[in-house]
């Protein structure tokens, strides 16, 4: 069967559907992304400050925040006076 280019995802979606796990994970990622970017809207924050503000465990904040750095959504700010913790800011 010939499928039009750029429309092949629809072909597979119609054929086998989208895995529930993938949908759930996307929902979870979007929720956390929204929370982190929302928290960084007005100020630069460290991971500890973000964790407190979002009531989210630090390891989880670290993982998602640094993923957002990789994706170019968040940028790395200054390091504190003790050279221990960086702050993070939104890419404008």
């Amino acid at each position: 069967m010939k499928v039009e280019a750029r429309k092949t995802a629809k072909y597979l979606r119609d054929k086998q559907g989208v895995p529930e796990k993938a949908k759930e994970e996307l929902k979870e990622y979007n929720r956390i992304k929204k929370a982190i970017t929302g928290a960084l809207k007005d100020e630069e924050l460290t991971i500890a400050q973000l964790s407190e503000k979002l009531q989210m465990p630090k390891p989880e904040v670290t993982y998602y925040l640094l993923s957002l750095v990789k994706y170019g959504i968040v940028a790395i700010g200054e390091i504190d006076d003790m050279d221990e913790y960086y702050s993070y800011k939104l890419v404008k």
Partner: peptide
């Protein structure tokens, strides 16, 4: 493919049309 939601965003932006879910 296990984590793909088959939204098709990737193939819409691909300049060489190399993405092929068939």
């Amino acid at each position: 493919i296990e984590n793909c939601t088959l939204c098709g965003a990737c193939e819409r932006v691909c300049p060489t049309q190399c993405i092929d879910f068939t």
